[in-house]
């Protein structure tokens, strides 16, 4: 009970902590109050609770494939919002961005945090409510959950301060890199779920690294939660991982170009008015 509580809670907490700490860094760069993220965490927790309550009926949708389809849809939606988020050049500091542009960034952040927590938190709710009933399970489950959550949140705090501790010009770039990994992870997990639901065809296993780095080792669990590490990924999973990463990188690239373009235009306008 102890160990699987650690593993389960750690995976879900770490995945959420990575996303939230990177988003918090961008909020910090934009001087947006972290209040928004806190309210999104509350909304996500409530969403997770209701999702968990409805899980039994949701699972029976689409010929018993409801769970896979709904989870995959949430993950693809997260990927899409992530793309929109990075396309707004969230790393631009306040001097080059107008305050009203923050609204798009805030809305994306809220949706990202709330949706991710809804999906990840529901599993935690289902697990805890199923396991805690047994009196001999209570203590190991709670201790294990504490350790799992502790490791996950600590990793999030270190990612946050680690990013902020970088030289200023690297902060946004590193944040975007992490977000592209989150995007790849989302795409790959969604592919896995849709393959499991038989909505996507089987594709062959590309490699097997379960001897060197098994998925059920501590490091394997950490890497799975952070970057979607799989010891035996399928071709389609690897393909969608790369596609997800490229999508986020491309949107981030376009976003940063758009901003610099409009800054150029503003400068020429200014010059024109001076000449007049």
């Amino acid at each position: 009970m102890f160990l699987n509580s650690v593993v389960l809670i750690l995976q879900e907490t770490l995945e959420a902590a990575l996303l939230i700490s990177v988003l918090l860094v961008f909020m910090r760069l934009r001087c947006i109050r972290p209040f928004w993220i806190i309210s999104a965490i509350a909304a996500g927790s409530a969403g997770a609770y209701f999702f968990a309550l409805q899980m039994a009926s949701i699972s029976e949708w689409f010929d018993y494939m409801g769970q896979e389809v709904v989870n995959a849809s949430i993950q693809l939606t997260v990927l899409l919002i992530l793309a929109i988020f990075v396309a707004q050049n969230p790393g631009a500091t306040h001097s080059t961005s107008k305050p009203q542009k923050d609204l798009g960034v805030i809305i994306c952040t809220l949706l990202l945090v709330a949706l991710s927590l809804t999906r990840e938190g529901s599993e935690v709710f289902i697990y805890i409510s199923g396991v805690i009933g047994h009196p001999s399970h209570a203590q190991p489950t709670l201790t294990g959950s504490g350790i799992g959550a502790g490791i996950g949140i600590s990793a999030g705090v270190l990612i946050y301060y680690g990013l902020l501790g970088l030289p200023t010009k690297w902060i946004a770039l590193s944040g975007l890199l992490l977000l592209s990994l989150v995007g790849g992870n989302m795409a790959s997990q969604a592919t896995q779920l849709l393959t499991q639901a038989d909505w996507l065809p089987y594709s062959k296993i590309l490699w097997d690294s379960s001897d060197g780095l098994p998925e059920n080792s501590i490091l394997g669990h950490l890497l799975y939660a952070l970057f979607g590490y799989e010891a035996t990924p399928s071709l389609l999973q690897v393909f969608s991982y790369i596609a997800g990463m490229l999508l986020i990188s491309l949107c981030a690239h376009l976003g940063s170009r758009k901003i610099s373009f409009s800054t150029d235009q503003k400068t020429t306008d200014h010059n024109a008015s001076v000449n007049r």
Partner: peptide, 26 residues
């Protein structure tokens, strides 16, 4: 900053160590 980062490092190392201890004890 000091509290959060020191506590995070302590928690991370202690808990991972506890996990290792648990596994080998088991």
């Amino acid at each position: 900053f000091l509290l959060a980062s020191i506590l995070a490092i302590l928690t991370l190392f202690n808990f991972v160590a506890a996990l290792q201890g648990y596994q080998s004890s088991l």
